[in-house]
């Protein structure tokens, strides 16, 4: 049901710019005001979230048992999975951010009906779908910079060329479009297919998936099917990033552009307040970004109260006679009223 609600919500989001531009002719509002506001919300929300997280107390080191920790000299340490120094932790973070190493360890529980053994087996699907999707989305996002820069830096021209290197169709088919749509669809199918994942899935899980799928499909529809005036679009996007809004050619641009921009704006504004903030959060994961050096360094609890040591001897000195009177055994004979 939550998946259906999410789908209906994304359809509503498509309708808003269709009506707003098609009937109300609010081109300036949908092409400039909405995305600019969304970017401001994105940036401010991102900074707010990071501030909030920076103010949260950091837990004690959490050693994860991904590999052998540093031990005796003749036991080989797994340095990237169980790092004990800053440099090793840095490599673990690099691998985590660029190759999604923790997803690679994803397992599933299987009952072998033949032997009756219940055990864990490797399940790389989540990792593979995530890699396809994230790299596809990243290339798509960076490639869009050709519409936001003048002159276009050579690196974006190379990206544009390389992405369309198969020369399929006109305009050329982008490989990253395939990666993005395949990845996000597989992630969505996985969420619907696997009953255990479906059971724990919420609106906030389906909505970002469907919204990103909507962004991708609206862009694909705009580029390959509806076909829009790219030069007019570049005039609008450049006007937006240089804050010069005079004489922008809105009337030359088809409705599919406004739908695409509105969905992207929704994604940007929603981003800091959703699970998508793992973009910033992955860097602040306590199980990933702290070395396992709890037995090497002395870690002092920063909020320990200042308690002076109080030995038993000193304690008995304070309360000895009273303890003796109550029948509690004491060490010092003087407290028992005896001569030493």
């Amino acid at each position: 049901m939550t998946a259906m609600y999410s789908l209906v919500f994304v359809f509503l989001l498509v309708l808003i710019p269709l009506i707003g531009v098609g009937s109300a002719h609010l081109e300036f509002f949908f092409a400039v005001c909405v995305p600019t506001t969304a970017i401001i919300i994105f940036l401010a929300g991102f900074v707010y979230k990071i501030f909030q997280w920076t103010r949260s107390p950091v837990p004690f080191r959490i050693p994860t048992t991904g590999g052998q920790q540093q031990s005796l000299d003749w036991i080989k340490q797994n340095k990237w999975d169980n790092p004990s120094t800053g440099a090793q932790t840095f490599i673990r973070m690099l691998l985590e951010v660029f190759t999604f190493r923790s997803l690679f360890r994803n397992t599933k529980v299987d009952l072998n009906k033949g032997t009756g053994v219940l055990g864990y087996s490797s399940s790389k699907w989540l990792w593979m779908f995530a890699i396809l999707f994230h790299y596809g989305f990243f290339i798509v996002a960076v490639r869009h910079m050709r519409l936001f820069t003048e002159p276009v830096p050579i690196i974006f021209e190379w990206l544009e060329f390389g992405d369309g290197i198969l020369q399929l169709g006109v305009p050329r088919l982008y490989l990253s479009d395939l990666l993005l749509v395949t990845g996000i669809s597989l992630l969505l199918i996985r969420r619907l297919w696997d009953s255990r994942v479906r059971y724990i899935s919420l609106f906030t899980d389906y909505f970002p998936l469907l919204l990103i799928l909507g962004v991708a499909l609206s862009g694909i529809y705009m580029r390959y099917f509806a076909k829009v005036d790219v030069v007019a679009i570049k005039a609008v996007t450049m006007g937006m990033v240089t804050f010069s809004y005079a004489n922008l050619p809105f009337e030359q641009i088809g409705a599919s552009f406004y739908v695409h921009v509105f969905l992207v704006s929704t994604l940007l504004a929603y981003f800091p307040f959703s699970k998508l903030m793992h973009l910033g959060g992955v860097f602040l994961s306590p199980t990933r970004n702290m070395p396992n050096d709890t037995r090497i360094k002395h870690h002092e609890n920063p909020w320990n109260p200042d308690i002076k040591p109080h030995s038993y001897e000193a304690y008995e000195k304070d309360f000895g006679p009273a303890m003796h009177e109550a029948g509690i055994p004491v060490v010092d004979p003087a407290n028992r009223g005896e001569q030493a």
């Binding site: 003048e150 005039a235 006007g239 990033v241 240089t242 010069s244």
Partner: peptide
């Protein structure tokens, strides 16, 4: 993420 803002700032206004 603000790359387009500072990249285009020093150049002349965009012309079609």
């Amino acid at each position: 993420v603000t790359f387009p803002l500072w990249f285009n700032a020093p150049s002349e206004a965009y012309k079609d």
